[in-house]
Simulated scan of single mutants.
Amino acid sequence: MDKVSFGYEDVPPDEKTRRVGSVFSRVAARYDLMNDLMSGFMHREWKNQFVRRVKPRRGEAILDMAGGTGDIAFRLAESGAQITVADISREMLEVGMDKAKRRGIDGLVWAQENAEALSFADQSFDAYTIAFGIRNVTHVQQALDEAHRVLRIGGRFYCLEFSTTTWPGFARLYDQYSLHVVPKIGKAVAQDEESYRYLVESIRRFPGMDQFRAMIDKAGFAQSRVDPILGGLVAIHSGWKI
């Protein structure tokens, strides 16, 4: 049987799907807080920059995949676009719905969905966004194919994801920080060192920027591009369905 990566382990595909679901069920309650602590609050500006690239417009339909806690969806919704928030984790969606209620944000659609097998009809959306979620998908190419399927002609694909920075000194520092410090923060704040060790390892097993761009091309997207942040520590990938 073919195997896929779960951190530094290679496991059967069904096992990865189950384990990833378990990870996000466990970290959902402290997910936003951990993002702030791990990134020194920088993830907020990365997400702002990402949404500026998407350029959401009033009335258009946008699917925000792996967007359970609502961070991207809330930003997109400010434009007046119609946002569907999809996530494989019910617990992550519950966190997002609770945040939306507390902030008085309504009109969002919340859906439990697997990125590899979306329930939406062909050509349902004008844009597809996924932030820090694609590397946790069991079959990444299949998820990209599904993104292409549900987009209308002229639709935009945008992905924000960790990658590998090309700044040598910074790369060494970040490696030490992520491998040794992040799991300890997870243990202290979320009482879950194991999940955060997996999340760090998953970044290292994810395809590099050029390789992932090639996968986006393979899914049928045109005019693909990648915009590195901090030398590629984080990258915004994009493409068009034409």
Rank of each mutant, 00 (worst) to 15 (best):
R197E: 12
V23N: 00
A190C: 05
K187P: 00
R156A: 03
E146P: 03
A73L: 09
A190Q: 00
I72H: 01
P207Y: 07
D122G: 08
G96M: 02
G59M: 12
Q82F: 06
H43K: 08
L199S: 00
E94V: 07
M1D: 10
D98Q: 14
D217S: 10
D98F: 07
Q142Y: 07
V54L: 15
S119L: 08
Q176V: 11
A127T: 07
E201G: 05
I83K: 00
R30P: 01
S224Q: 10
D98Y: 09
D14K: 11
H139G: 05
A188S: 15
R213N: 09
Q112G: 07
A100I: 03
L179V: 15
D175K: 06
F132I: 08
Y31P: 00
D36Y: 12
A214C: 06
S89K: 02
E78N: 11
D71S: 09
A171F: 04
W110Q: 02
G154M: 12
G70Q: 01
A121G: 10
K3A: 13
L118A: 04
R204E: 13
A222K: 13
A28N: 02
F74D: 00
P183T: 03
R58K: 15
M42K: 13
P12M: 11
S238V: 02
G155D: 05
K47I: 10
G107K: 10
G21N: 15
T138M: 11
V85F: 04
R152V: 12
K16F: 09
D145L: 07
R205D: 02
E201F: 09
G59C: 10
E91Q: 11
D122K: 11
V234T: 11
F132E: 02
E161Y: 03
D32L: 08
S195P: 02
D14L: 11
H180M: 07
R135T: 07
E193L: 02
R149I: 12
V20K: 05
F120V: 14
L173D: 06
Q223D: 14
F41N: 10
S25R: 15
E15Q: 15
A219R: 01
Q191M: 06
V11Y: 04
S178D: 03
M97S: 13
S25T: 13
L233R: 00
A235Q: 03
S202C: 10
I153G: 12
T138H: 09
R225H: 11
D36F: 13
Y196P: 00
V4N: 07
Q141K: 12
F41Q: 13
L37H: 07
E45N: 09
Q191D: 06
M215S: 11
Y198R: 05
E91Y: 05
K55I: 14
D106W: 09
Q123W: 08
Q112T: 12
Q112P: 05
F50P: 01
G232F: 06
N48P: 05
S79A: 14
F212M: 05
K218Q: 09
I216N: 00
L151M: 12
D10Y: 12
G133E: 04
T166W: 03
R225G: 13
E194I: 08
E9Q: 14
E9T: 08
